[in-house]
Design a binder for these strands. Sequence first.
DNA 1: CTGAAAGCGCTTACAG
DNA 2: CTGAAAGCGCTTACAG
Lengths: 339, 339
Amino acid sequence: MNRKRVTIYDLAKAMGLSPSYISKALNDYPMINIKMKEKIQMTAQKLNYKHNSYAANLRKGISRTIGVIVPNINKKFFSEIISGIENVCFENDYGLIICQSQESFEKECKAIETLIRQNVDCIMISITAETQSTEYLQNIINNDIILIQFDRYIENFNTFKVLNDNEFMAYEATRHLISKGYRKIAFLGWVEQLTINKLRIGGYLRALKESNLPSLIFDNAIQKERTAEVATKLLKSIEPPDAFVTFADHQALIVLQVAKSLGIEVPEQLGIIGSGNDSLTEITTPTLSTIDQKSIDLGKQAADLYFEILSKKLSKKTIIITEKIVPAGIICRESTMKF
Amino acid sequence: MNRKRVTIYDLAKAMGLSPSYISKALNDYPMINIKMKEKIQMTAQKLNYKHNSYAANLRKGISRTIGVIVPNINKKFFSEIISGIENVCFENDYGLIICQSQESFEKECKAIETLIRQNVDCIMISITAETQSTEYLQNIINNDIILIQFDRYIENFNTFKVLNDNEFMAYEATRHLISKGYRKIAFLGWVEQLTINKLRIGGYLRALKESNLPSLIFDNAIQKERTAEVATKLLKSIEPPDAFVTFADHQALIVLQVAKSLGIEVPEQLGIIGSGNDSLTEITTPTLSTIDQKSIDLGKQAADLYFEILSKKLSKKTIIITEKIVPAGIICRESTMKF
DNA sequence: CTGAAAGCGCTTACAG
DNA sequence: CTGAAAGCGCTTACAG
């Protein structure tokens, strides 16, 4: 590999100046003669000089790079978060290195190793479903890298966190249905053991309790067939629910299909709310109400948090914020418009 | 920033050996005493030594990093491509730096600059809709960085390319509809000037010509309202089409809605095919036939291409392949099952 | 099999 | 305002 680029030495030689002077000029040091500065920057451009980040970072001991680890980047939720992170990083002239754990703890560990070797300044991670051990995360901190967990995180592990408020999200969705006049609201949950699922159940129950309404919880109803099965069973029962809170748009859509096939009118006889604000939810008939998780914003918040920490660290102030909550919003469309 | 890590010097001191020897042991050089090698690797682990990629890359002049620039990573098509690229990179222990151009030529240029400074070994790019100039891309090549264009690319610019075959994609989709017995097939296109749109029209016309069928082309029917407007007008006309080829699932879904609202039976009276294989297309009633663009595979192919080029380059062989075509597939579901 | 020395391209105290 | 020198943490010819 003989990628021979123009260096500050080349510029120095070409201009009869010292390399250190060139470096300062290029980095906008104040004590440089303004005329010279301009001249040097002109020449750099002309000679197609490219600053070598590796050399600078090695010298400075920082990388201006953030590493992100997510289970999958080809999921709307995560790709939006990354998009949000990327925007903020770009503005601050920070690079982003992306890794996918593919829900494998082993890949996750390898990704962490890689990012540490890459000398990243910060690692943002949403852990896999498998991740139990806190050892690798601790390793990040031991290497003086700022660790921010987002969305899926390890509890009882004291790091920075940026999270959706799942309890509140479920509470709001349930409240929304209640406010629209629905009275027997079924909950279609995700995997039972997941923390987020438990939190959602909590929010759901809280809303019901406030209005003295009965609960109807079905966990593990995330797979297509299972969702259809549960929805069918419930809607055919003697006292069917008059609404469903779900936490994925595809769940909501399946419920909608089942309802249609049984001749049940949505939203008149049945209210349905999904989650994720998939672009197709605007197009269905009826259009689907949905929980907007503000995932781009969540990514933005995570990146903002990093830069806050950084500035506090530089100014030696104590750091106060360790957890940010990004509130979800309810997007009200036809599927919950009983009135 | 006093991120003080363990270096090979620390290891050398701790073990009474030379840094260069440590380096060789850690890099699995053959001439090192096997016992020593093991001992050194043990100690490195114990002392929590982390190899510093920046230092190594600076010395070696390579980065083992690939830069990717896409308009938006929070679009299914692109995030899947990136996912495919990431998988291959991870296997080869290559890092990935992601940038979004947000369809802005300016941001695209800035991203290219950043990646060059980062010393990436390869840049994979899908250009913005604005991009006309070839100057920045040329700059990549001038810096001895391998350039691979994917999906959206500049024509008449001789670089490596990995593409969907848009002509063939449209041809196949149209053929599919013909084979199912549809005879008056309307084409709902994207922005008129786009190369891909022209290619698709070509494929559509080719299929029709083979079967001596009439054409019915409507460009700029990608926005929700416009799609609905065109579909409504056509379906209400005296001789309405009996099928629609579209190149986005949301277009297909809108057509489906319009048809339903007009009491037209799908697929009996009207065939519809979308594109993108959105997860919700499996859930609609009827389920939607769609063009599967194999985007994860496209990403994988792009990364594979890089590693092929690399190995050819190292073995000083001439490079032959410059363009890879990833064929799309038709996923046949209910919306085109006339028979 | 092991080590001394130079160098990758920058930046940063320090000196003038 | 300008420059000489050291050093960031590695790797790699070269020598022994």
